[in-house]
Write a protein that binds this DNA or RNA. Structure first.
Length: 604
DNA sequence: GACACCAGCAT
DNA sequence: CCCGTGCTGGTGTCA
């Protein structure tokens, strides 16, 4: 819009002068910055008296303009529902230029005036000013909010602390900007052939489902499924959905229902379920693939890559550094943090299902370096658990990491009191894993006892790890007093108060607090690592950069095979980010030349 | 069309 | 009542 000079946004001086209301707001109240609540539209009415009417007026007018164009088949390039990404769909932000352009260029102004001013409206007069008004309000509200938040933050949290947190996000801006504009390379042909494979199998399995059930439906929706399985076949529902209390029909439940079929010799229903499970897998895959296909672009947004090939295809995910209540990143359009792992379809399935899934395309192989490039993902080994150990200051846990234990095995040994030279069984390890994840996800006493099927285990653990117990009590106390917990770097996180801690559910809130402190510290560490590794890349490794961030993993790109010393340096930068916050965190490195799922582990 | 719910994917 | 944080897309209901 001509407000900022976009010529050299990668230049250091440029970023020096950028302050981000999102970061300031998140520091003021980490619950504000969720996906739904962070926009000015929500913040202005909440903290100022502004109702932000001008945005609404603009949205409506833009939509009227788009309708006007559609009705007349005018040759205006209008954002189309199928091609405009989700974020732009809402109110046609992509068409902000439209009102002024119509006023300036539409040949029959009289016609335009009649349309805009019909039914007593005066929209024609607004065409030339509506976006300016919006933009002005946007600036004013942004400034006033920032001013207000900063004042509160400095008073409540102290200037030095606050400055540190703000500086971290400040330093992240150019890093995120680079990632967002330079994008993630995808293998375009592979994408298309994978979609075709999915389609083939979807058709095949669906046809079989129709045959077996005699239901000639386009799709086996949840309601059709419930009717068939529970009413017609007489199977017993396993569990019920949270709100509507209907029988759950997710994959796990369907697998259990399949067991019921085997017991009762319902061969047709049994085979139906197999086909349906395979069908669901392929349908989901296709959905992901089509999502990637829809938003991919030829890499013309890559102004800084020297020998850039216009035939390469890229995705440009949007990153929100304040997209979560815990300081983790969120990613959208597409979400680059939930790319399916290859192992996913082949575990815990029945043999016939496995067979049908054998040709299933691997989504991770869609992503990979462009020709000639190298990617190397570097991930923190069991970062969350190490943070938990550091937070609790539980010596035995910290020591087990130092001694190089597999942590789940270590926990299995502790729980089942195994001698050191005896190997834990896979069942024992599974229990231990459930306990570990339970803790970092903030499970309650009841939940831990239930998922491990060992009543009383939680209490045993509390005796076994007294510091962990103290840590829980301390977190609980913090929540009772303030509703706020702190990460290891001192970042304040608000616990959602939808469950009031004073009505007997304080324990639950306390476990939430554990989760927030662990995830919050994780986010903090990885953000610092990103800033520092980016700095290293720009300084010492030409044309290298961060491609993606997946919570405890950073994927780098280089135009040639990275040297061992570069990898070593990057690794220690990442590890130092951990120790800076008091966590010992070794980092694993892998190299890939073709795609994310064909990695070579590097041994240094 | 807006909204709630459900499902499925990740760390 | 509840093991967390996210994003996306489909279905079904309501206005």
């Amino acid at each position: 819009m001509g407000v900022l000079d976009w010529e050299e946004p990668s230049h250091h001086d440029f970023w020096e002068n950028i302050y981000d209301l999102g970061s300031i707001n998140h520091l003021f109240d980490s619950r504000d910055s969720g996906v739904r609540q962070s926009s000015l539209k929500c913040l202005a009415p909440k903290y100022l008296d502004g109702d932000y009417e001008s945005q609404e007026v603009m949205e409506k007018l833009i939509n009227r303009c788009r309708n006007f164009c559609r009705l007349r088949n005018a040759h205006w390039k209008i954002g189309d529902k199928k091609t405009v990404p989700q974020a732009l769909k809402e109110f046609g932000k992509g068409d902000m230029w439209l009102p002024a352009a119509l006023l300036k260029q539409y040949p029959d102004q009289n016609e335009l005036r009649l349309y805009m001013n019909k039914e007593g409206k005066h929209d024609y007069e607004l065409l030339g000013t509506v976006c300016d008004t919006y933009l002005r309000d946007d600036c004013v509200y942004t400034y006033r909010l920032a001013e207000g938040f900063l004042k509160e933050i400095l008073e409540e949290q102290g200037p030095e602390e606050a400055e540190q947190h703000l500086e971290m996000n400040h330093a992240l801006h150019p890093v995120i900007w680079k990632m967002e504009t330079q994008g993630v390379h995808v293998h375009h042909d592979h994408l298309e052939s994978s979609i075709a494979t999915c389609e083939h199998w979807i058709k095949k399995t669906h046809a079989r489902c129709v045959d077996l059930t005699g239901k000639d439906v386009q799709k086996f929706t949840a309601s059709i499924l419930r009717k068939y399985l529970f009413d017609e076949c007489g199977l017993e529902p396993i569990t019920f959905t949270a709100k509507a209390k209907l029988p759950q029909v997710d994959s796990d439940r369907l697998l259990l229902l399949k067991e019921q079929c085997e017991e009762r010799d319902l061969t047709e229903a049994n085979e139906f379920l197999s086909n349906l499970l395979a069908n669901t897998k392929y349908t989901t895959k296709k959905q992901y693939l089509e999502g990637y296909h829809r938003v991919q672009q030829i890499g013309n947004k890559v102004p800084y890559e020297a020998d850039f090939d216009p035939h390469q295809w890229y995705l440009f995910p949007s990153l929100k550094s304040t997209g979560t209540g815990t300081t983790r990143f969120s990613s959208s359009n597409p979400n680059s943090q939930n790319i399916e792992k290859a192992s996913n379809p082949f575990e815990d399935d029945f043999d016939d299902v496995k067979e049908m899934l054998e040709q299933s395309p691997k989504l991770r192989s869609i992503f990979g370096p462009a020709k000639g490039d190298w990617w190397f993902p570097m991930d923190y080994k069991q970062l969350q658990l190490r943070i938990f150990a550091a937070l609790t200051q539980e010596d035995s846990l910290i020591q087990s990491f130092r001694d190089g234990w597999d942590f789940h095995n270590f926990m299995a040994h502790a729980i089942f009191d195994l001698p050191e030279n005896q190997k834990a069984t896979s069942a024992q390890r599974r229990v231990a894993k459930a306990v570990n994840f339970g803790f970092i996800f903030g499970a309650s006493e009841k939940k831990i006892d239930e998922t491990t099927k060992k009543p009383g285990l939680y209490q045993e653990l509390m005796i076994m790890f007294p510091n962990a117990k103290d840590f829980l009590d301390e977190t609980k106390e913090q929540i009772r007093e303030t509703g706020i917990v702190y990460t290891m770097g001192g970042y304040p996180l608000k616990i959602p108060m939808r469950m009031s801690p004073w009505d007997g559910r304080l324990n639950y809130a306390a476990h939430m607090g554990v989760c927030y402190r662990v995830q919050g510290t994780e986010g903090e560490i990885v953000k610092k690592a990103m800033v520092n590794t980016d700095q290293y890349c720009t300084t010492f490794m030409e044309d290298s950069r961060i491609v993606m961030q997946i919570h405890d993993e950073i994927v780098f790109k280089t135009p040639e095979r990275p040297s061992k010393s570069h990898i070593r340096n990057l690794r220690s930068i990442m590890e130092n980010a951990g120790t800076h916050f008091g966590v010992e965190t070794p980092v694993d490195v892998e190299l890939c030349q073709h795609s994310l799922d064909r990695k070579v582990t590097v041994i240094l």
